[in-house]
Design a protein around this nucleic acid. Structure first.
Lengths: 165, 165
DNA sequence: AATGTAATGTTATAATATAACATTTATGGA
DNA sequence: TCCATAAATGTTATATTATAACATTACATT
């Protein structure tokens, strides 16, 4: 059995994003219920905004959107919600972009590998055992104990280089 | 023949850092000469400051140090020098820390994998073919063309967990 | 209701990075 | 040598990303 997971593939140009969004929110609700945590209106709204599409979203863009609905939002409003969501594995930060993507696999905290299309901005997320094991093996050679892994691969997704010039 | 390289290992507590620094600067000089590029005083000074030690250095710390020597330095002074040095592979940015480390292997541009000790801050840099090939293989499966790879692994280096509490 | 904790509101500011334009310095050709 | 050009640096301002600190409100339990 292959335990490698494609947590989130590149999405075809048109997919039912409403369903996609709904299932992410439902998963988050369930996760929080099971963990005895509160997915407050602000947190849920931020999560929805992160899930606007399959591209990394900027904190201040989330803030702008929050302000449209409700007046009293400031940077801490967003960053606190993002911190909560990150702690619960509902959102990941893409360090090389200072931006955030939703994750629909909150059950277990995991290390992810991100593939980011420079053209369309879409992100695919893997949780790949082979990669983890190889990094582990390499680290082991010089006695390094891994606590956290960041793997962010930039390039061109299939759609983009097939349709590209 | 194993083409995997340890570009920069974790340094033992005491090593001859002056030599280390000098050889990095010499390599940079040579590289620029061969490429017909100018390692101007500012660029060299910034490179020296990046090489202060084997920890990632912050842009504004470099700026503070620059100011000590010479009055007229502003953020662009540092960022321009860092851009130049990054383009030449003399410096890498650690995205997850917003900080910069020196690289003594400018000859060929390469992808690097960084192992960063959370305790002592030291960074080791690999240019590991196995990792590159595995990422390549994984990407290939869904038609992704890799342009750039960021691999930043956080944890505890051998020294630190052996001497640790 | 009283209490303690978690969440949010609010203001200010820190930290990181770039834009835009002026000036100076190097470089190669007339 | 001198000029024209490009490259590098100076300078001011501002954009972007993120956190500190403290006040207030909402929630959960007794």
């Amino acid at each position: 059995m292959n335990k490698n997971k494609v947590i989130s593939p590149f999405k075809p140009a048109s997919h039912q994003h409403q369903k996609c969004l709904k299932s992410a929110i439902d998963a988050a609700k369930k996760h929080c219920e099971l963990s005895g945590l509160r997915l407050t209106p602000i947190r849920q709204r931020v999560l929805e905004l992160v899930w606007q599409n399959h591209e990394p979203v900027k904190a201040y863009d989330i803030l702008d959107n929050l302000k449209k609905g409700k007046s009293s939002s400031a940077p801490p409003t967003v960053y606190r919600a993002l911190d909560f969501l990150q702690d619960e594995g509902l959102v990941h930060k893409i360090e090389s972009l200072n931006a955030y993507v939703g994750c629909n696999n909150p059950k277990e905290l995991h290390n992810s590998q991100f593939f980011i299309c420079d053209d369309c901005g879409a992100v695919a997320e893997l949780d790949d055992v082979d990669i983890r094991e190889l990094l582990q093996k390499k680290a082991h050679r010089f006695g390094f104990r891994i606590a956290d892994e960041m793997v962010e691969i930039k390039g061109q997704c299939k759609e983009c280089h097939e349709s590209g010039v």
